[in-house]
Amino acid sequence: DELVREILGRCTCPDQFPMIKVSEGKYRVGDSSLLIFVRVLRSHVMVRVGGGWDTLEHYLDKHDPCRC
Rank of each mutant, 00 (worst) to 15 (best):
L35Q: 10
D31F: 08
M19L: 13
K62Y: 09
D61Y: 12
C66V: 00
L3N: 04
G25V: 00
H63P: 06
I20L: 10
G51A: 13
P65I: 04
S32Y: 06
Y27H: 08
G52D: 13
V40T: 11
C66S: 05
I20A: 09
I20S: 09
E57W: 04
G52I: 12
S23R: 07
E57F: 00
L3A: 08
V45L: 08
L41Y: 14
D61R: 09
R10Y: 05
R42E: 11
G51N: 13
L35C: 12
D31H: 13
S23L: 02
V49E: 15
L41W: 13
K26E: 07
V22P: 00
Y27S: 02
L34T: 14
D1K: 09
V22D: 08
G9W: 04
T12Y: 02
V4I: 14
T12I: 08
Y27L: 02
P65K: 03
V47D: 00
C68F: 13
Y27V: 00
S32T: 12
G51Y: 08
Y27P: 01
K62W: 06
K26I: 10
Q16V: 09
G52C: 11
L35F: 10
R42I: 01
M19A: 05
L41C: 11
E24F: 00
Q16C: 01
S33F: 05
M19N: 03
G50E: 13
S33G: 14
L3W: 04
L41Q: 15
D61N: 11
Y27F: 05
G25M: 06
C66Y: 05
L8V: 11
C66T: 03
F37G: 14
L8N: 03
K26V: 15
R28W: 07
P18C: 06
Y59I: 00
D64G: 03
L60N: 01
R28I: 09
R67V: 00
F17E: 01
H63M: 10
V4Q: 00
G50V: 05
G52P: 04
D64C: 08
I20W: 13
L41S: 13
E57Y: 02
R10Q: 11
C11T: 01
I7Y: 08
S23N: 06
K21S: 03
E57N: 08
F17P: 04
K21A: 03
Y27I: 08
I7V: 09
D15H: 13
H63W: 09
R10L: 06
P18F: 04
R28Y: 07
H58P: 01
S32Q: 12
G9D: 14
S43T: 13
S33W: 04
E24C: 05
L56W: 01
T12D: 03
M46L: 12
C66L: 01
E6A: 11
S32L: 07
K62F: 09
C66P: 03
V22Y: 03
G25T: 07
H44A: 13
R39Y: 08
Y59V: 05
R42D: 15
R67C: 01
R5K: 14
L34M: 15
E2S: 12
D54E: 15
I7Q: 14
K62A: 12
P14M: 06
F17N: 00
L35S: 10
P18G: 06
R10G: 06
S43E: 15
E6I: 06
G9F: 07
C11A: 05
L56Q: 00
P14F: 06
G30Y: 03
L35M: 12
V4H: 02
L8Y: 00
R28F: 04
V40H: 08
G50A: 11
G25R: 08
E57D: 09
V47T: 03
V47C: 10
C68S: 15
R67F: 00
G25A: 06
I7N: 03
Y27M: 05
V4A: 02
R67L: 04
S43I: 06
H44D: 13
L8K: 00
C68T: 15
K62P: 02
R10K: 11
D54N: 07
V40I: 10
R10F: 06
L35R: 10
I20N: 11
I20G: 06
V29P: 00
F37E: 15
P14D: 12
R10N: 09
L41P: 02
S33L: 10
D15G: 07
R39N: 04
D1Y: 05
P18R: 13
H63T: 08
E57I: 04
D31W: 10
M46H: 08
L35Y: 12
V47I: 08
R5A: 14
R67G: 00
F37N: 15
D15N: 14
L60K: 02
G50R: 10
F17M: 03
G9A: 13
F37P: 15
D31K: 10
R42C: 10
E24D: 14
L3P: 04
H44T: 14
G51M: 10
G25K: 03
D1T: 04
L56C: 01
D31Q: 14
R42F: 09
S33K: 13
Y59D: 00
Q16F: 05
M46E: 06
S43N: 15
S32F: 03
S33E: 15
L3I: 11
M46R: 05
W53G: 14
K21V: 03
Y59R: 01
R48E: 10
D61C: 07
E2K: 13
I20T: 13
K26F: 13
E2G: 08
S43L: 04
S32M: 09
D1R: 05
D64K: 00
L60D: 05
E2Y: 12
K62C: 09
R5D: 10
D15W: 08
W53R: 15
C68G: 15
V49S: 12
V49I: 11
G9L: 06
T12H: 05
K62H: 08
L35N: 14
D61W: 08
P65H: 05
D31C: 10
S23W: 05
Y59H: 00
T12P: 03
M19H: 07
R28E: 06
G9N: 11
S23E: 14
G51K: 14
D15E: 14
S33H: 13
G52R: 13
D15Q: 13
H44F: 05
I20P: 01
D61L: 12
S32R: 11
P14Y: 08
I7F: 04
V47S: 00
V45R: 02
T55K: 06
V22K: 07
S43G: 15
Y59G: 01
P65Q: 03
L41E: 15
I20Y: 14
G51S: 14
G50H: 09
P65R: 05
I36G: 04
Q16W: 08
D64Q: 01
V40Q: 08
T55I: 02
G52F: 12
C11H: 00
V38I: 08
G30M: 06
V47Y: 07
T55S: 13
R39K: 07
I36P: 05
D31L: 11
P18Y: 04
S23Q: 11
E6C: 04
T12G: 04
T55P: 08
V38P: 08
M19D: 00
M19P: 00
L8D: 04
G30W: 00
P18M: 06
E57P: 01
C11Y: 01
P18A: 07
D1C: 04
